[in-house]
Computed example of a mutant assay.
Amino acid sequence: MNNKLGWMLDDAMKMPETLYAILLSADGLLMAHSERISRDDADRNAAAMSGLQALARNTAEFCGETAENWQQTVNEFPGGYIFLVAAGPGAYLAVSATDKVDMEGVSSRLQELVQRLGNELTTPPRYAQQESGSLA
């Protein structure tokens, strides 16, 4: 992993009281991490967040929704929060924060970041190859 999207996560971490951010695939592979978290911790948390999103998506019918409509899960602990959001097809963004964080502010910032990440995660369409083998 070359962490080429790490700078985008670092940008999100400029919000007061945020701690760490990771971008992960649905199967728990680390795609990027903020600078403040070690690679080992980011890997371990990516695997855990994969399980968390799977649980959240599979409980969607409890509120009359389908798994495809899952958007965000927030876990609260005595000292803070974990925000887990869909970041594109098969990608998820997790951010941790202290209990003093502006929850609405973080949610808004994460949605902005998801828009930016979506542009980075989407592969541009390939041009059809011509018979000569060059790209059209």
Rank of each mutant, 00 (worst) to 15 (best):
Asp11Asn: 11
Leu19Glu: 15
Met49Pro: 10
Leu19Gly: 14
Arg126Ser: 01
Met31Asn: 09
Ser34Tyr: 01
Arg116Met: 08
Tyr127Trp: 04
Asn75Ala: 00
Gly105Phe: 10
Glu35Tyr: 12
Glu112Ile: 14
Phe77Pro: 04
Arg36Asn: 06
Arg44Val: 15
Thr98His: 00
Leu121Lys: 07
Met1His: 10
Gln72Glu: 15
Ala21Gln: 09
Leu24Met: 12
Asn119Cys: 08
Ala42Gly: 08
Met103Val: 13
Gly28Ile: 04
Lys100Tyr: 09
Gly64Gln: 08
Thr98Cys: 03
Thr122Phe: 02
Gly79Glu: 07
Ala60Cys: 14
Arg36Lys: 03
Ala87Trp: 01
Pro16Ser: 11
Leu24Trp: 02
Gly80Ile: 03
Ala67Ile: 11
Ala32Cys: 05
Ser96Arg: 01
Tyr127Asp: 00
Lys4Glu: 13
Arg36Met: 06
Ala42Cys: 08
Glu68Cys: 09
Trp70Gly: 01
Leu135Pro: 00
Ala128Ile: 08
Trp7Cys: 06
Leu84Gly: 01
Gly88Val: 04
Ala46Met: 05
Gln115Gly: 05
Thr18Cys: 08
Glu112Arg: 11
Val95Cys: 05
His33Leu: 13
Met1Leu: 13
Trp70Ser: 01
Arg39Cys: 11
Ala86Gly: 08
Ser134Gln: 06
Leu23Arg: 08
Ala94Val: 03
Gln115Glu: 02
Lys14Phe: 08
Leu93His: 06
Val114Arg: 11
Arg44Phe: 15
Asp99Asn: 09
Met15Lys: 15
Met31Lys: 11
Leu135Glu: 04
Ala60Lys: 05
Ala21Gly: 14
Cys63Trp: 00
Ala42Glu: 09
Asp102Cys: 02
Met8Ile: 13
Val85Tyr: 00
Ala67His: 05
Asn75Thr: 00
Gly28His: 01
Arg116Asp: 11
Asn58His: 14
Met8Thr: 06
Leu121Met: 10
Tyr127Leu: 00
Met8Leu: 15
Glu65Asp: 09
Gly28Glu: 02
Ala26Gly: 06
Asp11Pro: 09
Glu61Gln: 13
Asp10Met: 11
Ala86Tyr: 01
Asn69Ala: 11
Met15Glu: 15
Ala94Asp: 02
Arg39Ala: 10
Ala67Arg: 03
Asn69Glu: 10
Asp27Phe: 07
Met8His: 08
Ile82Thr: 09
Leu19Lys: 14
Lys4Gln: 14
Ser38Lys: 07
Asn45Met: 12
Leu135Arg: 01
Asp40Thr: 15
Ala60Val: 14
